[in-house]
Design a protein around this nucleic acid. Sequence first.
DNA 1: TTGAAAGCGTTACCAC
DNA 2: GTGGTAACGCTTTCAA
Lengths: 337, 337
Amino acid sequence: MAKIGDVARRAGVSTATVSRALSNPDSVRPETRKLVLDAVRELGYTPNAAARNLRAGRSRMLLTVVPLLSNSFFARIVSGIDQEASRRGYGTIISEESPDSVEKQAHLLDLAAAGLFDGVLLLSALMPRVGRRSLADMGMPLVRVCSRREPGAGAVLLEEREATLIQTRHLLGLGHRRFMYISGGAGNINDIPRYEGFCEAIAEAGLQPDQQIRVEGFFDFASGTAAAHRFLELRAEGRAPTAIVAVGDQMAIACMKGIQEAGLRIPEDVSIVGFDGIDFTNYCQPTLTTIVQPAEDMGAAAAGLLIDMLQGERDPGEIVFPATLRVAGSTGPAPAG
Amino acid sequence: MAKIGDVARRAGVSTATVSRALSNPDSVRPETRKLVLDAVRELGYTPNAAARNLRAGRSRMLLTVVPLLSNSFFARIVSGIDQEASRRGYGTIISEESPDSVEKQAHLLDLAAAGLFDGVLLLSALMPRVGRRSLADMGMPLVRVCSRREPGAGAVLLEEREATLIQTRHLLGLGHRRFMYISGGAGNINDIPRYEGFCEAIAEAGLQPDQQIRVEGFFDFASGTAAAHRFLELRAEGRAPTAIVAVGDQMAIACMKGIQEAGLRIPEDVSIVGFDGIDFTNYCQPTLTTIVQPAEDMGAAAAGLLIDMLQGERDPGEIVFPATLRVAGSTGPAPAG
DNA sequence: TTGAAAGCGTTACCAC
DNA sequence: GTGGTAACGCTTTCAA
């Protein structure tokens, strides 16, 4: 592997000049520059990252912590991050969250302390932590995606409250008056504004938010199945809702399936809206009306914000994306009666 | 940030001793070790990665190149890789493939030349390359996952041929005699053994492989929709198959949907089998009979193999996983007539 | 068993 | 505009 000294020798200049010619081309004479660049090309020279990082005190690497990679919503965010980071000369280290594995979190903190990455993108509200040490405490520049903003950190958010407001208004507009809300978990940070939006829409229509049914979910298929069971119980008792608001597509899709298996039709008997806009919403039966989050864009924006922060060009700010409703086959007029 | 010198001073020993106490504990006296470890703890010391990498000439980082992260099959492999890598003290750098972006591939080669990672996991048959330079040429240790083995590289594979053999036999056993095969693209490296398996099963049953219909796909939803259209055309001509073998779940699911929208029932009118075993196969309507690939396990095995190779403990070998068929609702007896 | 010191490859400061 | 050189933080050889 060619080193800077080899290039210098070949170009007949000093290592200092090679370094300058590469990192700040305007600071050397055009002829010298050409000499250096030719030598670089001929030798296929690339500066050693470790040496450069050691000297510069930074790594041009970002860490992305993701709750669950197999959830395609998160995967799409990561995709956007990778794209933007790569475009701006940064690499992306990835780590799947593991709230239960102290070992893995410790490994992460070690990597941070070791200076392996310059900043962190957190795709959840959790904070990698071991004992009282956490990434934030270490002064690591941080951008959260799709969760709460915290002091000193950047954030990329969706208009969460607006989103459920739109979802619910859509159903109200179709004449629905009895609702089931499948949450993202009582403690979930995103669920707070989402539930607010839901309640606000309900109240607008002159209904009582606390008389609607709320079921706790965790964004996974199983939660949707469980919600379907609850729905069927309610139906047996003669007090089933006619519309379901789910704050995650996977929950919505599993719920649809559970309901259909009991012989009910969607949207004739029940309407349901999802949240996220994953690809499968277009390929389930019926297609799912859902809130579309521009996942790739949000990822790219987050990476861009973080890199700006690292380069001192931007203070940790907040970027908010609008929520849009994509109306599809799973919602229809409330059944008569 | 505490450095090794700070620890040495605090422990009253030399930096050399600190280094030894940490990397090779048995080489220092127990009392000394305790002294050092206490100092480390008190100062919250972590060795600087750049300095260590520079000295050691390696980075304890792996690069994973993935074709499409939003495909949950790939995402699950990455998840397995991350898990195993992290367990063994390695970090994972991720990069989404971009055959068309020379820039991104160049960036990747630069990172490699810069020594940012010690080895590469390739989740596709493509090889990052710019002109005549490629990762393989640079002598980068390599493990391919789910694609062809190449000289000098390791590989983690599924019994591809066996997989389609099982798929197709299952349908033959249900009485089907006319098939449509949705491929992964004529040039796709995995499609070759898969199509062989299909043909072999067909031939076993005394049928003509070349009289079955083959449709080219690219593992995405759109391919499945296109295949459905083709199916409906054939049906209009009165020569529709009764069973469909798709070598990807997304294609299978989109195809099911296209067929159902034309008013046909699955599996009563047509049976269909998928390939991969993504979560959605359990939540589509009907559930999809499919080949289950143990994606997380394959990812973990690949990372393990690569790390063994890096540590000189294993030659680049081949690990083959068995394919299993998960029978679900999308396959049934061939329609009479 | 421990310490001193060289060296990993780069960058940036200070002279010229 | 360019070259010499110290320094980044660590590991490892060589001596003691």
